[in-house]
Each structure stands twice: as C-alpha cells, then as structure tokens.
Amino acid sequence: MIVPVSYYLVLGAILFSIGVTGVLLRRNAIMVFMSIELMLNAVNLSFVAMSRALDSLDGQVFVFFVMTVAAAEVAVGLALIVAIFRSLGSADVDDAHVLKG
C-alpha cells in the first residue's frame, strides 16, 4: 500500500469527531441521525483500511454488516422521527422529552 494506513485512520478519526460534534451541536433529529451515519461511515473507512493493511478480509465483512445494521436502523429511526413529528409537530430532540404519546 502506497498511502500509509495511519493516514486513513486519521481521516476516519476526523470524520468520526465531526459526527460527534454534529450530534452535540444539532437539535434537529434528522441532522442528529445523519451525524450518526457519518460516524458509522468513519468507522467503516477505518475497517477497510485496517483490512487492507493486515491482508485480511474480515474487516470488509464487518463493513458489510455495519451497512446492513445502518439500513435497518435508518428504516426504524426515520419511521420513529415521522411518528414523533406527527404527534408533537416538530422534529426537535429537546421537544421529545416525555415518553407519553
């Protein structure tokens, strides 16, 4: 590999931190959710880089599973966000502080 693996890991770390910052910063549930996707994506990048560096395909299989989990999570999460929006009239995470529907 010509580009060293630590470059990819640093890039993954930066993207993960941006995702965490997005979760802390934004109050719109959709943006919080997209920041979580950004974090998953950063970890996927680290997985593929390590998989390449260690001559093993296990990391890429993990990326495959992470993508599946992300797809299921997005389907359920967005349905929840729409349900909360229908009952509260907003997608602000601070408005959804009670479990009562």
């Binding site: 630590s6 890991l9 640093v10 930066i14 931190s17 965490v20 910052t21 802390l24």
Partner: peptide
C-alpha cells in the same frame, strides 16, 4: 468537545 475528541483519536491512531 469535538476538537478534544479529534485530538485524542488522532494521537491514539497516528
């Protein structure tokens, strides 16, 4: 906190 996390992760990973 985002910057602190980035600094920590980069220090750990590089």
């Amino acid at each position: 906190f985002g910057l602190l996390l980035a600094a920590g992760l980069i220090a750990a990973v590089n």
